[in-house]
């Protein structure tokens, strides 16, 4: 009975509310897959058209930053998953701490991304703004970096949104009311954050790894 106030008037039970929220988030995530899907198709089309240039362009990216960033996101994802478990078991401080760490890791990711962009700007690798490559692969490299910037910016926007959502849940972690609703919300937010991580796993393989062996 304690959570009858937490349920909107159009829903019957808290179980129904949780299912609705979770299914809604999964539907949203399938939308997100296709949002990045258009970019992925572009990537493969141009990689197929000019494989050499894509290998050359891959070598231009900063793999150290990329790898560290991947590790940051994976760790933050772990923290969020752990925070959800903590919340489910009533460990509120742990929830808050873990979400806090996840947020810091996310901010660290964005910071490093900024450093990376700055470096690319200095190296004249920013299409449309400051791009000055000549040589055999110039056009292919430009296409690669167009993909790179649009994909990472789009991903960055998702990271920013995710940090905002996590911050809200971190702030509410120790509030006393509406636990079941909080946990359902946190589960939804966690799904989103893991998805952002999941997208990055693929972007990492597409952006940083090509051309390293030659």
């Amino acid at each position: 009975m304690s959570d009858s106030q937490d349920i909107a008037e159009h829903l019957a039970t808290s179980a129904q509310r949780d299912e609705v929220l979770e299914l809604g988030m999964w539907t949203f995530l399938s939308t997100e897959v296709l949002l990045f899907g258009g970019l992925i198709l572009s990537y493969f089309v141009y990689r197929h058209a000019d494989p050499q240039a894509f290998l050359a362009a891959g070598r231009e990216t900063r793999i150290v930053i990329g790898t560290v960033n991947t590790a940051l996101l994976l760790t933050s994802s772990f923290c969020v998953a752990a925070a959800l478990q903590a919340a489910e078991q009533g460990a509120r401080r742990a929830t808050r701490t873990l979400l806090g760490i996840a947020i810091l890791l996310g901010l660290g990711f964005l910071g490093l991304k900024g450093v990376e962009y700055l470096g690319e700007y200095r190296e004249h690798l920013v299409p449309g703004v400051n791009f000055a490559r000549t040589g055999q692969d110039a056009h292919g490299i430009e296409l690669f970096f167009i993909f790179y910037f649009i994909a990472t910016l789009l991903h960055g926007v998702h990271v920013v949104a995710g940090i905002g959502v996590l911050a809200v849940f971190a702030a509410m972690a120790t509030a006393t009311t509406a636990r079941s609703r909080y946990i359902a919300g946190l589960r939804t937010a966690a799904l989103y954050w893991h998805f952002v991580d999941l997208v990055w796993i693929f972007l990492f393989a597409l952006i940083y790894l090509p051309g390293r062996s030659s």
Binding site: L35, F36, G37, G38, L39
Partner: peptide, 8 residues
């Protein structure tokens, strides 16, 4: 499933 592709 289709609209996000238009968006991008």
């Amino acid at each position: 499933l289709a609209t996000p592709v238009l968006a991008i």
